[in-house]
Protein backbone atom coordinates (compact mmCIF):
# COMPACT_ATOMS: atom_id res chain seq x y z
CA UNK A 1 0.00 0.00 0.00
CA UNK A 2 2.69 2.44 1.06
CA UNK A 3 4.92 1.62 -1.90
CA UNK A 4 2.03 2.06 -4.30
CA UNK A 5 1.04 5.37 -2.78
CA UNK A 6 4.64 6.57 -2.84
CA UNK A 7 4.93 5.61 -6.49
CA UNK A 8 1.82 7.61 -7.31
CA UNK A 9 3.14 10.59 -5.36
CA UNK A 10 6.44 10.39 -7.24
CA UNK A 11 4.55 10.25 -10.50
CA UNK A 12 2.75 13.46 -9.59
CA UNK A 13 6.00 15.06 -8.51
CA UNK A 14 7.63 14.29 -11.83
CA UNK A 15 4.64 15.76 -13.65
CA UNK A 16 4.52 19.04 -11.76
CA UNK A 17 8.31 19.42 -11.54
CA UNK A 18 9.63 17.59 -14.61
CA UNK A 19 13.00 19.28 -14.26
CA UNK A 20 13.94 17.41 -11.09
CA UNK A 21 15.77 14.12 -11.16
CA UNK A 22 13.63 11.50 -9.39
CA UNK A 23 16.70 9.29 -9.04
CA UNK A 24 18.17 11.86 -6.65
CA UNK A 25 15.08 12.10 -4.48
CA UNK A 26 15.52 11.45 -0.79
CA UNK A 27 12.06 10.88 0.68
CA UNK A 28 12.93 12.16 4.14
CA UNK A 29 14.46 15.44 3.02
CA UNK A 30 12.37 18.55 2.46
CA UNK A 31 11.63 19.22 -1.19
CA UNK A 32 12.55 22.86 -0.58
CA UNK A 33 16.04 21.84 0.52
CA UNK A 34 16.48 19.21 -2.18
CA UNK A 35 14.99 20.87 -5.21
CA UNK A 36 14.43 24.54 -4.30
CA UNK A 37 10.69 23.89 -4.10
CA UNK A 38 8.73 27.11 -3.69
CA UNK A 39 5.12 27.98 -2.93
CA UNK A 40 4.13 27.69 -6.60
CA UNK A 41 5.65 24.21 -6.78
CA UNK A 42 3.77 23.20 -3.65
CA UNK A 43 0.49 24.45 -5.06
CA UNK A 44 1.06 22.64 -8.35
CA UNK A 45 1.99 19.52 -6.36
CA UNK A 46 -1.25 19.71 -4.35
CA UNK A 47 -3.27 20.15 -7.55
CA UNK A 48 -1.53 17.15 -9.11
CA UNK A 49 -2.21 15.03 -6.01
CA UNK A 50 -5.88 15.89 -6.20
CA UNK A 51 -6.02 14.82 -9.83
CA UNK A 52 -4.19 11.58 -9.05
CA UNK A 53 -5.73 10.65 -5.72
CA UNK A 54 -8.89 12.69 -5.47
CA UNK A 55 -7.77 14.29 -2.21
CA UNK A 56 -8.29 18.06 -1.92
CA UNK A 57 -5.61 19.32 0.46
CA UNK A 58 -6.42 22.52 2.39
CA UNK A 59 -3.84 25.29 2.51
CA UNK A 60 -3.37 24.68 6.22
CA UNK A 61 -2.10 21.16 5.46
CA UNK A 62 0.40 22.18 2.78
CA UNK A 63 3.17 21.76 5.34
CA UNK A 64 2.44 18.03 5.18
CA UNK A 65 3.72 18.07 1.60
CA UNK A 66 7.17 19.25 2.69
CA UNK A 67 8.81 15.88 1.97
CA UNK A 68 7.72 12.75 0.15
CA UNK A 69 7.82 10.68 3.33
CA UNK A 70 5.63 13.16 5.16
CA UNK A 71 3.33 13.37 2.18
CA UNK A 72 2.88 9.57 2.14
CA UNK A 73 2.02 9.55 5.82
CA UNK A 74 -0.45 12.40 5.47
CA UNK A 75 -2.19 11.02 2.41
CA UNK A 76 -2.46 7.58 3.99
CA UNK A 77 -4.43 9.14 6.80
CA UNK A 78 -6.58 11.20 4.42
CA UNK A 79 -7.37 8.25 2.16
CA UNK A 80 -8.13 6.01 5.16
CA UNK A 81 -10.42 8.62 6.72
Amino acid sequence: MTATLQERILKVLSQVAPDIDPQQLRPDVNLRDQFDFDSMDTLNFAIGLKLELGVDIPDADFRELASVARCVKYLQSRIAA
Binding site: M40, I47, K50, D59
Partner: peptide
Protein backbone atom coordinates in the same frame (compact mmCIF):
# COMPACT_ATOMS: atom_id res chain seq x y z
CA UNK B 1 -6.58 35.22 0.97
CA UNK B 2 -7.21 32.60 3.66
CA UNK B 3 -10.95 33.14 3.41
CA UNK B 4 -10.86 33.08 -0.39
CA UNK B 5 -8.83 29.87 -0.50
CA UNK B 6 -10.78 28.11 2.24
CA UNK B 7 -13.89 28.25 0.08
CA UNK B 8 -12.27 26.92 -3.09
CA UNK B 9 -10.81 23.66 -4.37
CA UNK B 10 -7.04 23.56 -4.58
CA UNK B 11 -6.94 24.22 -8.32
CA UNK B 12 -8.84 27.52 -7.88
CA UNK B 13 -6.80 28.95 -5.03
CA UNK B 14 -4.54 31.98 -5.17
CA UNK B 15 -1.04 32.74 -3.97
CA UNK B 16 -0.28 36.27 -2.90
CA UNK B 17 2.22 36.58 -5.75
Amino acid sequence: LEDFNARRPVEARLLHS
